[in-house]
């Protein structure tokens, strides 16, 4: 959403016009990339008594508009609290994410006035409609690192294969290859995975197979991080690079505490939540 400095039929509080005096509305951003998502926290600072009153009486609210024009992604988050947190799925985002902040009316109001209107508006009152914008806050364009949106990213170093070795049970992880990790599935499991993993139960099949496999893979990586034979493998380097670019060092990941499990959940963007949502959707249908 592009904000243009154009005239409006009523005063709007912003930092590019002078409709209000001795007032301000700004937003402080903390946005960062985390594996398959972009997380952020926005703290609003509002200095205008009349608009503050509207928020306190639930007639207006803080609004964040997030848009990625290239992927047609668009969402809004609103709150009457001056802090808003969000998490975005990077499969929906490419290049630039435009974040804009507003204060928006939630209902029609009549006779709105402010002592801080510019003297040109002095004494004037305005009847405004729900969804009209009262204030425009600080904007931010966040650039996405594109490493993980390649058509061959993490899945290209994880290969699911049919395994007939009954000793290994239904699932096994082979990290011996230089290029990719092989996740072996017993034939009947493999067939089910191939069938269900494509459509209705995509996320569930993903969680059941790839999630435990990744726990094992990262555990082996931490255990063998000094072993040149291991660290020179292509798949090791791809996963390691992904961890480092998201602020995680192998030294700090351990199965002794929650770090290993939380890293794996972050890498796959909370697979449990997505799986349960999927199962929930299915249970509603049957």
């Amino acid at each position: 959403m592009r904000i243009k400095n154009r005239l409006s039929p009523y005063p709007i509080l912003n930092d590019y016009g002078d409709d209000y005096i001795d007032s301000s509305f700004t937003a402080e951003y903390d946005v960062k990339k985390e594996f398959t998502g972009v997380c952020g926290k926005i703290v609003f600072h509002l200095h205008n008594r009349e608009i503050e009153n509207l928020i306190e009486t639930a007639q207006a609210e803080y609004m964040v508009h997030i848009e990625c024009p290239l992927t047609s992604y668009r969402c809004r988050i609103s709150s009457v609290n001056p802090e808003i947190e969000f998490k975005l799925d990077s499969r929906q985002l490419f290049k630039t994410v435009e974040i804009r902040t507003f204060i928006v009316l939630t209902r029609n109001i009549s006779g709105f006035s402010s002592e801080s209107f510019h003297p040109d508006y002095s004494g004037q009152k305005f009847d405004l409609l729900a969804h009209q914008i009262l204030a425009v806050g600080t904007a931010k364009d966040y650039n996405i690192n594109q490493d993980d949106r390649d058509l061959e990213s993490l899945p290209s170093v994880l290969r699911i294969v049919k395994s007939t070795n009954k000793k290994k049970g239904s699932i096994s992880v082979n990290t011996d290859d230089d290029d990719y990790v092989m996740i072996g599935l017993a034939p009947e499991v493999y067939d089910r995975y191939a069938q269900l993993g494509k459509s209705t139960f995509k996320d569930t099949a993903f969680s059941l197979v790839l999630f435990p496999a990744l726990v094992i893979i990262i555990q082996r990586m931490t255990a063998n991080k000094e072993d040149a034979g291991m660290t020179s493998k292509h798949w090791f380097q791809v996963i390691h690079k992904m961890l480092v670019s998201n602020g995680y060092k192998l030294d700090a990941i351990s199965a002794e505490n929650d770090t290993l499990l939380s890293v794996c959940q972050l890498v796959f963007a909370d697979p449990l939540v997505r799986s349960f949502k999927e199962l929930d959707l299915y249970s509603e249908r049957v």
């Binding site: 609004m63 507003f102 409609l129 969804h131």
Partner: peptide, 13 residues
């Protein structure tokens, strides 16, 4: 859209 937050509107609106 210059003065109204369109994304807050319902389909009916």
């Amino acid at each position: 859209g210059g003065v109204t937050f369109l994304d807050a509107m319902s389909r009916e609106e």
